[in-house]
């Protein structure tokens, strides 16, 4: 099960799915944040697989740090979301075009 190709495949496909989740989703910003979390997950997976494969602890340390960062980031993101919702009373992505060039 711990063959390298397999591991990389799993993490890469997870990353791709999350990326598509961000792109294809035009409606809900919550789904976007979830896809972002999935992206972090995919990267952490990749790091952990690599650290086991390469027998090196640094990857696992890094994944722990990423976990922390992801937690902080999602909290801040959700806070921004709440503030945004309070002002606009909607979270639809399509309508967020005030910054048009």
């Amino acid at each position: 099960m711990f063959e390298q190709l397999n591991c990389v495949n799993i993490s890469s496909s997870l990353f791709l799915v999350s990326m598509l989740g961000i792109f294809l989703n035009q409606k809900n910003i919550l789904v976007m944040l979830m896809s972002l979390e999935m992206m972090f997950l995919a990267i952490s997976f990749n790091l952990i697989f690599s650290s086991i494969r390469l027998d090196d602890i640094v990857g696992q340390i890094f994944s722990l740090l990423i976990l922390t960062v992801a937690a902080a980031e999602s909290s801040i993101g959700l806070a921004i979301l709440v503030i945004y919702y309070r002002i606009r009373s909607t979270v639809t992505v399509e309508l967020m075009n005030l910054m048009k060039g």
């Binding site: 990326m19 961000i22 792109f23 989703n25 035009q26 976007m32 992505v93 399509e94 967020m96 075009n97 005030l98 910054m99 048009k100 060039g101």
Partner: peptide, 17 residues
């Protein structure tokens, strides 16, 4: 160039990626 910046987050993400 200005027309590229639509204000849609998904478009910006597309350009970034």
């Amino acid at each position: 160039l200005i027309k590229l910046q639509t204000g849609q987050i998904t478009h910006y993400l597309f350009f970034i990626v």
